[in-house]
Computed example of a mutant assay.
Amino acid sequence: MARPPLYDMNRLLDAALELAAGAGPPAVTMAAVAKAAGAPSGSVYHRFPSRTALLAELWLRTVEGFQEGWFAALSGHRDPRDAAAAGARHVVAWSRGNRPEAVVLLYGAEDYGRADWSQPYLRRAGEGHRRVSEALATLGKSLGVEGELERDQLTLAVIDLPLAVVRGPLRTGAPIPARAEELAERSTRALLAGLGR
């Protein structure tokens, strides 16, 4: 039976994650990842043909991991306001429990070289964006949201507002306060109170 590779993709991405969380995307170089993982440079190039591919995989693995929990939180409640509140709480809880990943997501895909991504990476990113848009549309329909202003208000309540709760502590290195989930939920519910029916 063949032995599993010593330096598999996830091990190398974990090293890249720590570098990005510590000093931002510019710190993620092929040589730095090899050194952080204790791997030969050839192992990194074997898994990732270029730094662009490495950055794309790091970004997509991180955002897809976050999104799976967020989708699950939204789908776990019949009442749309409860679903939105659960989604807001998930942003905070996930950020606390996955701090390096949350710090990576403080940046945008552009900081991880999106302009140079190959088509397979762009398709993965597009699929994630499509799923988020569909989840918001479903939530909006359940809430009776109409018009661009209300759609923007929903996006603010479910995505932007809970991100604002964690952004400061993540940037400064401070702990995310224990009350942050409650703050995110209350704020999301307050913003949704006048929406739709």
Rank of each mutant, 00 (worst) to 15 (best):
R124K: 13
L105R: 10
R96E: 11
Q153H: 11
L156P: 11
G38K: 00
M9A: 15
P5F: 07
L191D: 05
M1T: 10
L170H: 02
F71A: 14
L55E: 02
A32I: 00
K141W: 10
R81V: 13
P4N: 03
A115G: 14
G87C: 08
A20R: 06
E182Q: 14
E101T: 03
G97Y: 02
Y7H: 11
A23Y: 01
V166W: 04
A37G: 01
E134Y: 03
G24K: 04
G97C: 04
A83G: 12
E110A: 15
A83D: 07
A73F: 06
A31Q: 15
Y107W: 15
A39K: 01
E64R: 08
N98K: 06
A73G: 08
E127Q: 11
D79T: 07
A53D: 15
A39D: 04
V44M: 07
A27G: 06
Q119M: 12
A37F: 00
A39N: 05
A157Y: 09
R81D: 13
G38T: 00
E101F: 01
Y45C: 10
L17K: 05
L195K: 10
V165F: 04
A56R: 00
L60K: 01
E18L: 03
A86Y: 09
W59S: 07
A23E: 04
P175C: 09
A83R: 04
G173Y: 02
A88K: 02
R3K: 14
E150G: 11
R189K: 07
Y107E: 14
E110R: 14
Y45Q: 13
F71K: 10
A72D: 13
A32K: 01
R99T: 07
R167Y: 07
L195N: 10
A34T: 00
A21Q: 03
L54G: 05
A56Y: 01
A36N: 01
M30T: 15
Y121N: 08
R189H: 05
G24C: 01
R78F: 05
R131S: 04
R123E: 15
H90Y: 15
P26M: 02
A157L: 10
E148M: 13
F48Y: 09
G168D: 03
E127G: 07
T52G: 13
P26K: 06
P40W: 04
R3T: 13
L192S: 07
L54H: 01
L13M: 09
V158M: 11
K35W: 06
A32M: 02
R11K: 14
L74E: 05
V145H: 12
A164L: 12
A109F: 09
N98I: 01
D160C: 10
V145G: 11
P175Q: 08
F48D: 06
A27M: 03
A32C: 03
A21T: 02
S41E: 14
R78S: 13
I176M: 04
P80M: 08
A15Q: 00
E150L: 14
R131H: 08
A190V: 04
R151C: 06
G168S: 04
